[in-house]
């Protein structure tokens, strides 16, 4: 159960990156989580509200994309996706594989933000941001 510390670290990183977008509101945080990352997605979601409460990330949606395991098979000389994590063998030829190419990812892919409302000289409240 280290998901709370994982989520807290996500909140810290997103908060830091918001410095470049003053006043922006975070709508969504997108993560990429490898099947072999030792992180339980349900637990991440469970901790999300708790960890974001009172932070600039509060109210943002959490979207987690699962990343499958990809091994390099030396016999096929190809990268192959595994169907599960009960057997690390090439899904084409059955050769045992120890060369992991993907599946341990634990990263923040992107955030969706809503830019701050500009309080320009005309006071119209139009968004001052450009996409």
């Amino acid at each position: 159960m280290h998901e709370l510390s994982i989520v807290s670290s996500v909140v810290d990183t997103v908060t830091e990156s918001l410095a470049a977008y003053p006043g922006a509101r975070v709508l969504e945080v997108r993560l990429r989580v490898g099947v072999l990352s030792a992180v339980v997605v349900d637990s991440l979601e469970f901790c999300w509200g708790l960890a974001t409460d009172g932070t600039p990330v509060q109210g943002a949606r959490l979207v987690v994309k699962s990343v499958p395991v990809v091994m390099h098979c030396s016999r096929c000389d190809a990268d192959v996706e595994l169907e599960g994590v009960q057997s690390f063998r090439c899904s084409r030829c059955g050769q045992p594989c120890s060369d992991l190419r993907q599946g341990r990812e634990l990263e923040i892919e992107a955030i969706e933000i809503e830019d701050a409302v500009s309080t320009g000289a005309d006071g119209s409240g139009k968004s001052g941001a450009t996409a």
């Binding site: 994982i6 670290s9 996500v10 990183t13 997103v14 990156s17 977008y21 709508l27 993560l31 634990l106 990263e107 923040i108 892919e109 992107a110 955030i111 969706e112 933000i113 809503e114 830019d115 409302v117 968004s127 941001a129 450009t130 996409a131």
Partner: peptide, 16 residues
């Protein structure tokens, strides 16, 4: 309101 996607591509355990 303008919404946009900001790519971060940051490892969550980067500091560690």
């Amino acid at each position: 309101m303008t919404t946009r996607i900001v790519e971060l591509r940051r490892g969550i355990l980067k500091k560690n």
